[in-house]
């Protein structure tokens, strides 16, 4: 009986020590982790703006649009430079070749795409993964809703050997653009 009590004591003490140590580490690294995530997000948003805004300070305001059950929230990001609206952006996720592809799409005042950035994907390295290359992503700037791959009779060059992945990005662009155009009127530009 005594050995059982000893076992329990040792186990519980170890777990407690581990928990306390981890909480300390968590508190110490928490701010840095949040900062890094925020930086990454801001960089992604800036990448979808027209080139001249790359070096400028911008404000990003989240504007969540929730469906009735509030389970799925699509967020529209309002990007402002000195309180002038530069673009609206949103994140779209569709199914690609190896998994989900997430893309941030920026849309200007003229209802045309200002830029686009693939933020997450699990496409084949060396083939489909080339959708993150600038050469491919840059083609999307200035396009409207008629966007299509050249292969499907449009004007976007697909990534060599990866038409499925390229088509997924085009689909994201189209959905994001459509979503913003549809909801543009209800966005409150002065919020935040």
């Amino acid at each position: 009986m005594d050995s059982a009590r000893k076992m329990l004591t040792v186990l519980i003490t170890t777990c407690l020590c581990a928990a306390v140590a981890l909480c300390l580490v968590f508190v110490m690294t928490k701010d840095d982790i949040e900062l890094k995530q925020r930086l990454k997000f801001v960089r992604a948003i800036k990448a979808v703006l027209p080139v001249e805004y790359l070096s400028k300070e911008v404000d990003i305001i989240n504007y969540p649009l929730c469906k009735e059950d509030c389970k799925v929230c699509n967020i529209i990001y309002i990007v402002k430079e000195k309180s002038k609206v530069v673009a609206l952006a949103t994140e779209v996720t569709v199914k690609g070749y190896g998994g989900r592809v997430s893309v941030i799409v920026g849309v200007g005042e003229d209802n045309k795409i200002t830029g686009l950035k693939v933020v997450q994907h699990s496409e084949t390295p060396g083939l489909g993964a080339n959708i993150i290359k600038d050469v491919f992503q840059r083609q999307f700037a200035g396009r409207d809703e008629t966007i299509k791959l050249k292969k499907d009779g449009g004007n976007i060059d697909h990534v060599t050997g990866a038409s499925v992945s390229s088509r997924a990005v085009v689909k994201c662009a189209k959905e994001g653009l459509g979503f913003i155009i549809k909801n543009r009127s209800i966005v409150n530009y002065n919020s935040g």
Binding site: S3, K6, M7, V10, L11, T14, C15, A18, A21, L22, V25, F26, T29, D32, I33, K36
Partner: peptide, 27 residues
């Protein structure tokens, strides 16, 4: 550490350091 519970204790110690590494790398 009593012999019988050494494996769970090792696991707790190891995973504590793994989580530490994970948080540090994320930061």
């Amino acid at each position: 550490v009593p012999k019988k519970v050494r494996i769970p204790i090792f696991i707790v110690i190891i995973s504590t350091f793994v989580t530490t590494v994970e948080l540090i790398m994320a930061a």
